[in-house]
């Protein structure tokens, strides 16, 4: 059984259809890259999978481990192990990153019927993971993303991913706004998490990230559909020839 199955997905925002019958199958352990021009519906897909309000699903279904995902609330989906690294992480003043991480992690654990981590146990884990990602301790004491640079925000997303150990990671333009060093750190963090039981959907405009995070499958999205799928070679072709050739295919 695939980990994620999206079938004939039609999605509207304020009455306008954004996704027009999208299909996508992701098996356990696979890393899929989704590429495509602005406005092709990549971010919409990530929002619909994670349950962001404001989207009407007019047809189709999404199955996660064979279960109807659309029947679950966004917090329940998170507890099932679906994680979204946001393109634009929000700032939450007055809430320390540490407090945020612990509240979120324990909420997920409770929803799964597990006991919450004790404070010392949690702190130890959070510090270890932060160190691996080159995140200074002082950052954990600051308000969530408040005053963080673009690179710090993205690293903070990877920190959360590493801490929550999700089953399906969706990375929405994790490479945007990163310089080459930051990109390498983020990519290392992602690669460290690759495992046969974990799948990833990497949304990006650029081939650059895929040099570091090598995908098993590459999809091209255009106008709300997947118009072509292939292996990592497809990303290189795109880099050379651009998206224009697919505009008509859609």
């Amino acid at each position: 059984m695939p980990l994620l199955e999206v079938r004939n997905l039609h999605v509207c925002v304020e009455g306008r259809e954004i996704l027009h019958g999208l299909d996508l199958t992701v098996n356990a352990g696979e890393v899929h890259a989704i590429m495509g021009p602005n406005g092709s519906g990549k971010s919409t897909l990530s929002h619909v999978i994670t349950g962001k309000p404001g989207y009407q699903i007019t047809a189709g279904r999404i199955l996660f481990k064979g279960e109807d995902l659309l029947a679950l609330g966004p917090d329940q989906r998170a507890a099932k192990g679906i994680f979204l690294a946001f393109q634009y992480p929000v700032e939450i003043p007055g809430v320390t990153t540490m407090n945020f991480l612990r509240t979120a992690l324990n909420a997920q654990r409770r929803a799964r019927g597990q006991s919450g981590y004790s404070t010392p146990h949690f702190l130890k884990r959070a510090r270890t993971v932060a160190k691996q990602l080159n995140i200074p301790q002082s950052m954990l004491k600051r308000g969530v993303n408040v005053g963080f640079s673009g690179g710090e925000k993205k690293r903070n997303e990877i920190l959360q991913m590493a801490l929550f150990e999700p089953v399906l990671c969706i990375l929405d333009e994790i490479d945007s706004g990163l310089d080459i060093d930051a990109l390498r750190i983020v990519a290392e963090g992602i690669n460290a998490m690759r495992s046969p039981s974990r799948s990833m959907i990497v949304i990006t405009h650029y081939q650059r990230l895929l040099n570091y995070v090598v995908p098993d499958v590459v999809h091209v999205m255009s106008k709300g559909r997947v118009v072509k799928s292939g292996d990592k070679q497809l990303a290189l072709e795109l880099e050379a020839s651009g998206y224009a050739q697919f505009e008509d295919a859609a």
């Binding site: 309000p53 917090d75 992480p89 929000v90 909420a107 997920q108």
Partner: peptide
């Protein structure tokens, strides 16, 4: 309190109230 901030927290597993 923006919808984006709430969704960010809820995507991390928190309930609306939390």
């Amino acid at each position: 309190i923006s919808e984006d901030v709430l969704f960010y927290c809820i995507q991390r597993g928190m309930s609306q109230e939390e």
